Amino acid sequence: MKEKDQVEITLESNPNELRLLFNLSAQYLSCNKEQLARLKLIYTLLLGRWQNLSRHHIEVEDTKFLDGLQSLKGLRYLSLQGISRITELPKTITGLTNLLILDLRLCHNLENVTAAVTSIKSLTHLDVSECYLLDKMPQGIGSMTNLQVLKGFVVGSARSTDQCRLSELTHLKKLWKLSIRIGSEAQIGEDLNELSEIEKLRSLKIAWGHMKSSPSEYTKPKTSRTFSLGKLEKLVLECVPDDDSEEIKLSQLSLVSEDVRWNVEILRLKFLKELKLEWNYMKRELIQLRCAQIYKCPKIGSSLPGFDENGFWVDETRVPITRTNLELPSDDNA
């Protein structure tokens, strides 16, 4: 695809020979479902952006072309990352019976992940992170038993009766990476305890959304007092709301579970204004800890020994980890 004001997706005379279609730089796409349906044997379709920069904006003229996806029976990898004007996926996506990876990250207009997605039992990776208009996830995600990575799972309003609950995720026996966004009207109660039942979970990110300034309209969400995840290797907590500071603390995360210490290797604590915890205690209990970031957590400390100016700490005795080759992914990939 070449970059110009608008790029129309056109196919050669033998579209059946295509196995991969990759958007290198086009920002404005025009396509129709008949054209898309001709890609009978395509394995990889990346129409979205791959650059990790906000200036790489992509729009589609009309989203009706997505109806043509149902004909792509052999498709394994579909990326619509960062494409504007996609508000929901069509029900015809159920035709993607061999799809492994569905990347919808940064689709800022996405309002609904249709329940049809849950019928794609082959999916191993589902990414809806940074889709901030999403207010819930569809029921049935727990039946997607091949899922290994689920990013952007939304805990929505307690008023919603047709959303997926955290308890459903306990059926995902292969899930090892999970990121959760807790909405402003969510009441998570004891639900976080359910995550302890996901046996293979190794990487967990929990981010709280903007809480309403007048919470009296809703019952104040309560969080469980014990939350044990003894096999975690990476934990990211972001934006715990101040008005829950007495209930939502790292001390709720049991550092010892059945005499087995945490296996956390990477720890991020960000924007936790009320969190009170001693750094030396964390180092002592998290015996596998290789690196950490403590950012804007004033009650832990702003100038901790061994931390650099960006709030990063690395145990340089645990070779080959160093500050220059540290494999610490960005928040976008958490």
Rank of each mutant, 00 (worst) to 15 (best):
P215K: 07
S216K: 13
E217P: 11
E217N: 14
T219I: 10
T219N: 04
K220A: 01
K220Q: 09
K220I: 03
P221I: 02
K222Q: 14
T223Q: 02
T223G: 01
T223V: 08
S224Y: 07
R225P: 03
R225N: 06
T226L: 07
F227M: 03
F227E: 01
S228G: 14
L229Y: 06
L229R: 00
G230L: 06
G230K: 13
G230I: 08
K231M: 12
L232Y: 04
E233L: 04
E233I: 08
K234P: 00
K234W: 05
V236S: 08
L237H: 09
L237N: 07
C239T: 07
C239A: 11
C239L: 07
P241A: 09
P241I: 12
P241Q: 09
D243W: 04
D243R: 14
S245N: 11
S245F: 01
S245T: 06
E246P: 03
E246G: 12
E247Q: 03
E247D: 06
K249I: 14
L250Q: 02
L250C: 05
S251T: 15
S251Y: 00
S251V: 13
Q252F: 03
Q252L: 12
L253Y: 14
L253K: 02
S254T: 15
S254F: 02
L255M: 14
V256F: 06
V256S: 11
E258M: 07
E258G: 10
D259T: 11
V260A: 10
R261Y: 03
W262K: 07
N263D: 13
V264H: 07
V264T: 14
E265L: 04
I266D: 12
L267G: 05
L269G: 06
K270E: 15
F271W: 10
K273Y: 08
E274D: 15
E274W: 07
E274A: 12
E274I: 04
K276Q: 15
L277G: 02
N280D: 13
Y281F: 04
M282H: 00
M282A: 06
M282G: 00
M282E: 03
K283I: 12
K283D: 00
R284V: 05
E285P: 01
E285W: 00
L286A: 00
I287V: 12
I287N: 11
Q288P: 02
L289V: 06
L289K: 05
R290P: 00
C291H: 01
A292H: 03
I294P: 05
P298R: 11
P298Q: 10
P298T: 12
K299V: 08
K299W: 02
K299N: 13
I300T: 01
I300H: 05
S302Q: 03
S303W: 06
S303F: 12
P305F: 02
P305V: 09
G306T: 09
G306A: 04
F307Y: 08
E309V: 13
E309G: 08
E309F: 15
G311E: 10
W313M: 01
W313F: 10
W313Q: 01
D315Q: 02
E316R: 09
E316T: 12
E316F: 09
